[in-house]
Amino acid sequence: MKVLFIGGTGLISKEVSKLAVEEGVDLYLLNRGNRNSFVPEGAKVIYGDINNRKEMNTLLDEHHFDVVVNWIVFTEADIERDIAYFTGKTEQYIFISTVATYQRPPLHYMVDESTPQHNPWWKYASEKIACEDRLRQELRENGFPMTIVRPSQTYGNTSIPFAVTSGVHPWTLIDRIINGKKIIVPGDGSSLWTITHNTDFAKGLVGLLGNSETIGEAFHITSDEVKTWDQYLAVLGKVVGVKPRIIHMTSESISLFMPEFKAPLFGDASTSYVVDNSKIKSFVPGYKATTNFEQGIRESIAYFEENPELQTIDHVLNEKMDYAIASYEEFLAQIN
């Protein structure tokens, strides 16, 4: 099976690339060559910029792929570009969407692929919804062979997931825990949330490659493990051997001090829901997420400890969090 990944070296996609090659897939990665250290042995690299249409038409002219997976599509314009590139050049086009497209806040705690899609809080999610709608239209009108995949928050060795933290400098959260600084948790910490290890997501995605029965279908691929934010933080503390100091703050308050968190909090992380993975399990028999959060985060912490150069700190965010916490606690003290 000849498969093209556009990207293929990111946090989620690198594990999918690795597993695909191990499963015997003839894998091609189209990227600009900036992350060659993440290219698995056995994969072939096509160097190019997906947004350079003249270059792409030349690079893709002699190729036909059984499957194309684009890991870096975010807007409807990206979808239009890919429809133009890959119509007649693939038997299956997989679009990587997100579970954040589901209704926020959800009307029912259990979310499956039939859950309405509506998220006015977060432009990222709204644009993914528009991408999905455009693909369905192209399938109806012209038979474009699309499949939609929706990951949840997914992590791996190079990341440390949490609700309020630094994505670029993930060690910031661990540094705060170790040094006894308070950790901001949205709401009262009881929102239910699902975090998925990238090796588990890979098993589901690779299982969908080349399956003609998935055309026109949407799947989310997540862990079945569900914890509250307080529980996730407790696991982080257990792994590093320090009990985290928690401060619960409303999402509104967090957003006033750190506006960059407003969309992902109201549009995703502060809403409580449970993901039903029955559909992916029915199409990929035997699919099961086997890396629980404690195991996965132990691997992440070990990786950062083995690579101390990655233990960078987001000092700007640290200052914002310290100021937010101090102001919030001063306000609460005035009430008492």
Rank of each mutant, 00 (worst) to 15 (best):
V185R: 10
L205S: 00
N211D: 10
L209W: 04
S166H: 06
D112E: 11
A125I: 01
I174L: 10
L208D: 05
V99S: 02
Y109N: 14
T90K: 01
H220S: 11
M110P: 08
Y93C: 04
A130Q: 05
D175A: 11
I183Y: 15
N142I: 06
L192A: 14
R176H: 12
V164D: 15
T194D: 05
E91T: 02
H169K: 15
T98P: 02
R140M: 12
A218K: 01
I174S: 01
I195N: 10
N179R: 11
S114L: 15
N179C: 12
E141N: 09
L139P: 04
F86T: 01
V164Q: 15
P151T: 00
I184Q: 09
I178N: 11
R134Y: 05
F86W: 08
F162V: 11
H220W: 08
K89F: 12
K181E: 14
G210Q: 06
K182P: 10
T115R: 01
F86G: 08
P145N: 07
I94K: 00
V149M: 03
S152Y: 07
T194Q: 09
V164K: 15
R81C: 13
W171F: 07
Y124L: 12
D200Q: 07
Y155F: 04
T87C: 07
E138T: 02
T87L: 02
A125T: 05
V99H: 02
S159N: 06
T199G: 04
I184Y: 09
Q153A: 06
T172H: 03
P161C: 08
Q117D: 11
S114T: 15
P105E: 11
L209Q: 08
H108I: 12
G216S: 00
E141Y: 02
S152G: 05
S191H: 15
K123A: 04
N142T: 08
R176F: 10
P145V: 01
G180F: 14
E113H: 04
E132K: 03
N157V: 12
I148G: 03
R134A: 06
G210H: 04
H169M: 15
T165C: 09
A163E: 13
P106W: 03
F95A: 08
G156I: 03
R136Y: 03
I94Y: 03
N157R: 08
T115G: 13
G143T: 06
N198K: 14
I96D: 09
V168P: 13
M110K: 12
S166M: 08
N142W: 01
F95C: 02
W193A: 15
L205T: 03
A202Q: 00
